[in-house]
Computed example of a mutant assay.
Amino acid sequence: MYARLVDRDPVVPADQLVAQMVPPAMFDEVSFASYIPDPKEPSQATAVRKAEEFSGKVAKIRGGGRRGLFGRKAQTTGAGLYLDGGFGVGKTHLLASIFHSSPSPKAFGTFVELTHVVGALGFTRAVEELSSHSVLCIDEFELDDPGDTMLISRLLTELSARGVSIVATSNTLPGQLGEGRFAAQDFLREIKKLASIFETIRVDGPDYRHRDLPPAPEPTDDADLLERVKSIGGATLDDFDELCAHLSTQHPSRYGKLVEGIPAVFLKGVRAAEDQSVALRLVVLADRLYDAGIPVTVSGAKLDEIFTPEMLAGGYRKKYLRATSRLLALSRFEVAA
């Protein structure tokens, strides 16, 4: 017999939501020194330098603060940094490096994870939980949903006023016309109350996950999936449609726990997602699988065919392309038997 994701029903207590806001395991050991800038892309070396300078500001703000009347420490507004660029240029590496070099307490999460935390805790408690932090690192800041964007903008305004520094990365499309100029302008417009504290830094380059690599691997067959999953202790094998249905019963904040400790994921009968709600859940699952570095092997359609051409032409195009990039990277990981 084999394990299945659909049989798992994880629970994440509310008081653990902020505590688990740390970089994915694959970024546990990264640093500014371990980021190797592409000599063909000078913006990368500049981004490393600016990120390191920002880290110094974080430590100074949290540890210092000027003295006011009667020797009381005056409130200092947090610093802000926005790393703008396409997929796979090392923005998350720099974000995690800032996190590692900043004083505790501190928090790291994707934009989606942060909205889930605020939704689970409530706005007031989320502010209270995060206001003692030196820095809040937000990966893949999204401008797709006006409601979520305004909610997080309000949260960041409150936290910045309390001395929490904010650093965010973009989910800008590679090759988008004017992406460097317009993505940064869009971000600053949406967080207009905070715009003055943010320095925007451009990071150019190709997606490192797919440099000089072949296209998406061909799917295998169901019989091969079954044999392979049996040879890997703890690996899971799920029917794609059943897994999509199971994801609809789980809050996205649970997806990390859903795949926790799994060495490999096998999916049979993969096909194009039937609608946006299913596709967006698969985006979150892809992010959590990628964070954990879990190999993915499928039968049915290729992993770059999950999101339809209509979806890729729509408002969530950025999310779908990022998820595809990450799923393809996972499909090339070696599965240890």
Score class of each variant (00 low, 15 high):
Gly180Met: 08
Arg181His: 10
Thr149Arg: 15
Leu159Ile: 05
Ala161Arg: 15
Arg189Val: 04
Phe187Thr: 03
Gly147Cys: 02
Ile152Ser: 05
Ala183Pro: 00
Phe187Asp: 05
Met150Cys: 00
Glu142Gly: 05
Ala168Thr: 11
Pro146Thr: 06
Ala183Glu: 09
Ser170Met: 07
Pro174Ser: 12
Ala161Thr: 12
Asn171Thr: 09
Ala183Thr: 13
Thr172His: 05
Glu158Met: 12
Arg181Trp: 04
Pro146Arg: 05
Ala184Met: 02
Met150Trp: 04
Asp139Thr: 03
Leu156Ile: 15
Leu159Val: 06
Ile166Met: 08
Thr169Glu: 03
Thr149Lys: 10
Ile166Tyr: 11
Phe187Asn: 06
Gly180Ser: 06
Phe187Lys: 03
Asp139Gln: 02
Glu140Asn: 10
Ser165Phe: 07
Phe141His: 02
Thr172Ala: 15
Leu159Asp: 10
Glu158Thr: 10
Thr149Leu: 10
Glu190Val: 01
Glu140Gly: 05
Glu190Arg: 15
Ala183Gln: 09
Leu177Met: 11
Glu179Gln: 13
Phe187Ser: 07
Ala184Gln: 12
Ile166Leu: 15
Phe187Pro: 06
Gly175Leu: 06
Ala168Leu: 07
Ser153Pro: 11
Asp144Phe: 00
Gly175Asn: 10
Leu155Ser: 13
Glu140Ile: 04
Arg154Trp: 03
Ser165Ile: 03
Gly178Asp: 04
Pro146Cys: 02
Leu151Ser: 13
Phe141Asn: 03
Arg189Lys: 15
Thr169Asn: 09
Thr157His: 14
Leu143Pro: 07
Val167Pro: 12
Thr169Phe: 04
Leu159Gly: 13
Leu143Val: 09
Asp144Ala: 13
Asp139Ile: 02
Val167His: 10
Glu142Phe: 00
Gly180Leu: 00
Glu158Val: 08
Leu177Ser: 12
Leu155Tyr: 12
Asp186Ile: 00
Ile152Asp: 03
Glu158Gly: 12
Met150Asn: 14
Ser160Trp: 01
Leu155Ala: 11
Thr157Arg: 14
Ile191Lys: 00
Glu140His: 04
Leu143Met: 11
Pro174Ala: 07
Glu179Asp: 05
Leu173Cys: 00
Asp144Met: 03
Asp145Cys: 08
Glu142Val: 04
Asn171Ile: 04
Val167Cys: 14
Ile152Ala: 04
Gly180His: 07
Gly175Ala: 08
Pro146Gln: 02
Arg181Lys: 14
Arg189Gln: 12
Pro174Phe: 01
Gly178Phe: 01
Ser153Ile: 03
Ser153Asn: 14
Arg154Asp: 15
Leu151Ile: 06
Arg189Tyr: 05
Arg181Asn: 08
Ala184Arg: 11
Ser160Leu: 08
Leu155Asp: 12
Gly180Pro: 05
Ile152Gly: 08
Asp139Cys: 02
Ile138Thr: 11
Glu190Met: 10
Gly180Ala: 11
Ser160Cys: 14
Glu179Val: 01
Ala183Cys: 06
